[in-house]
Design a protein around this nucleic acid. Structure first.
Lengths: 106, 106
DNA sequence: ATTTTGCGAAACCAAAAGGTTGCATATATA
DNA sequence: TATATATGCAACCTTTTGGTTTCGCAAAAT
């Protein structure tokens, strides 16, 4: 089990869940209602998300509300930082210009 | 085959390859020398990265130089944007303070 | 001309992932 | 108390993944 954040966001359903609970906590059943999948499947995704601390849970009676640990997403942002300088440089803008010229020639 | 950028960066070896060729183009053999894996394995990763347009290749004689399509990484950044506002709000800073207090109590 | 080198592609394999089904448990509700 | 609901967890199955081995081809080197 790798279970790091990059593997966690690799699955499209998990990304959808993340977006869904970003603003308000939801129960597994409520989440499952939003997708074409079963509650158990969502539950599995939630476990993975919980294991890599992307999601936190709060029990309320027999319901469990899941919400996003937004801070954890910063790790992806941090990884992107090493490339941000590259895509913001003039060199890349020049690259864009060159490829545009190339296309026009065709 | 899903083959989107999120699945591409899910693998740690692929992330390492991405970081490696971010600054200069490299051949599969040269890339493989940097890891504890075979050239064929790297080749497979490069194919995946190429398929989702994260990497471009340039043939030079019998060698093929692979380099990063930095622009493609912006897609991850774009996805993060929807959450960026959230983790930058005061509410989250308050959240941080609260969890710090919680830790001190322990 | 022959050998070496760099490469992609296909075949094969073990492990992991994602999904489903069934079950146990705890909390509501009638 | 009996039943319905919300959930986690384990077992199972199929597909995908990451890796290795083998092969063939083309370009360089001998």
């Amino acid at each position: 089990m790798r279970r790091d954040i990059f593997q966690a966001i690799a699955d499209p359903t998990r990304r959808a869940i993340i977006a869904l609970i970003a603003l308000q906590a939801m129960t597994p059943n409520a989440i499952a209602d939003n997708f074409h999948t079963t509650r158990q499947s969502v539950s599995k995704h939630l476990r993975i998300l919980t294991e890599c601390e992307l999601v936190k849970q709060e029990q309320q009676g027999r319901e469990i509300y899941y919400s996003l640990e937004i801070k954890k997403l910063k790790e992806v942002d941090k990884w992107l930082n090493q490339f941000r300088k590259l895509w913001e440089t003039r060199f890349n803008q020049l690259d864009d210009v060159l490829s545009t010229i190339k296309k026009q020639k065709k």
